[in-house]
Design a protein around this nucleic acid. Structure first.
Lengths: 153, 153
DNA sequence: AAGCTGAGTTTGCCATTCGGACTTATCCTG
DNA sequence: CAGGATAAGTCCGAATGGCAAACTCAGCTT
């Protein structure tokens, strides 16, 4: 960008007014982003998340509560046959709006840290590849509900 | 996405093979992402970053070293008139490739956490607005060097 | 030579995280 | 109804990591 070419002495916007910095206040730690990754994958249950991520229970409890408090997740009661009612966690619209962040991370990680190639293909329902990218403001966006994730081998 | 609609019990890809999770190993902490934000803004000097972010010296030293080690930043010697040579830090190609992540965070933060509206306009050189979004795989991307950031008000 | 400055490094304290054990609520089986 | 199973959550001591402030160091200016 204009600024990273021409080096500046100070940021054009102070941290407390920067959208990115504010976002990081809410989701800027390791576990929180991994939890959102799980949520995008559709994992909703406490112990399923724990099994996927290996996160300590106490940390997961605390992070889920924080995400609910900030309105990125919402509690969704569920009940298995023969079990008592419990609460799962699902993304709200605000949480789903973070999809580009997660997918951009995934794209970068796959491109730079995956000698074995991407683990997941991101396409629309017709199988056409999708990507998160910097594009003209009037480019039509693909809705999250039309995204299909296919594990590769 | 297909998966967040239909809730899954487990993630389709284990953490250690997921590009997003791998990316988080490298950049998944609060300070690292803020440092990259500074780098995108074109801030290259240790003490300038410190002044912008309020990060402790020891942490900044450690994070910069880590980012250099992972190849996202590179040391660029500079010398002010009448001062000795020092080293600044500039993004490598790999580091610049993270722009969509930062810009996606910024877009989300501006949309959901900025009652006062965005602090920065993201446009191309002709002033046309840009965005980071989920789009068809063949959509042309805007190169980072053509991006202009304009502080608002 | 005395002092300044940018860029660190070191130190000692404090907050957070870790992981394992414990708790709770509810359901099922007998 | 007693006993067990289980998902979700709490508690706790030990370890890790973050923090501010003091210290270091090289080379510049006076």
């Amino acid at each position: 960008m204009a600024n990273s070419a021409s080096s500046a002495r100070r940021a054009p916007v102070p941290v407390e007014r920067c959208g990115a910095a504010r976002a990081l206040d809410v989701i800027g730690d390791r576990w929180t982003l991994l939890i959102l990754r799980e949520a995008f994958y559709g994992v909703t249950r406490f112990d399923d998340m724990r099994a996927d991520m290996g996160i300590p229970r106490s940390v997961l409890t605390q992070r889920l509560a924080r995400l609910v408090e900030h309105g990125l997740l919402t509690r969704v009661p569920y009940r298995d046959e023969g079990a008592r009612a419990r609460s799962g966690y699902a993304l709200t619209a605000q949480g789903r709006a973070l999809a580009p962040v997660i997918l951009a991370l995934m794209r970068w990680g796959d491109a730079h840290l995956a000698p074995d190639g991407p683990a997941l293909a991101v396409t629309d329902r017709a199988g056409r590849p999708l990507k998160v990218a910097l594009v003209a403001g009037d480019t039509p966006e693909v809705a999250l509900r039309d995204v299909v994730l296919t594990p590769l081998v």
